[in-house]
């Protein structure tokens, strides 16, 4: 999630947020990667049922370009269109300067979202 959140930094999460509302586009969420304590901080870029793709580094949702002011590093990603399944959201990190193959991103079940960072 560089440069928004730094690797290894400590963040506090508001876990009750998932009870009151579903995650929205551009929200940063904590996704439970494994067990009770291993989390990933990612940004929601597409919601269930939407079609997502990357073209020349630009995010497209249902064919429309989405502005992402939080992406500060140059990006040249290309990803073929794919539909987000029901009960899931599509999450990507803010650090798009790294190779797409090395970046942890994709469709995550809403059940795995445990909260949002407090700051």
């Amino acid at each position: 999630m560089e440069p928004t959140y730094h690797n290894g930094s400590i963040n506090f999460c508001w876990t009750l947020s998932t009870l009151f509302s579903k995650p929205q586009r551009h929200d940063v969420v904590a996704v439970r990667l494994a067990g009770h304590s291993v989390m990933l901080l990612k940004r929601v870029v597409a919601l269930e049922g939407e079609r997502i793709e990357f073209r020349y580094g630009k995010l497209l949702v249902d064919g429309n370009t989405i502005e992402e002011p939080y992406v500060r590093y140059p990006c040249d990603w290309d990803l073929s269109p794919r539909q987000v399944e029901q009960g899931s959201v599509y999450v990507v990190g803010d650090n798009r300067s790294m190779d797409i193959e090395d970046h942890h991103f994709g469709q995550a079940s809403i059940k795995r979202i445990v909260g949002v960072p407090l700051w």
Partner: peptide, 10 residues
């Protein structure tokens, strides 16, 4: 059996 859970499905 071992199954690696795919949390983020590209």
């Amino acid at each position: 059996a071992f199954e690696v859970v795919e949390v983020l499905k590209k």
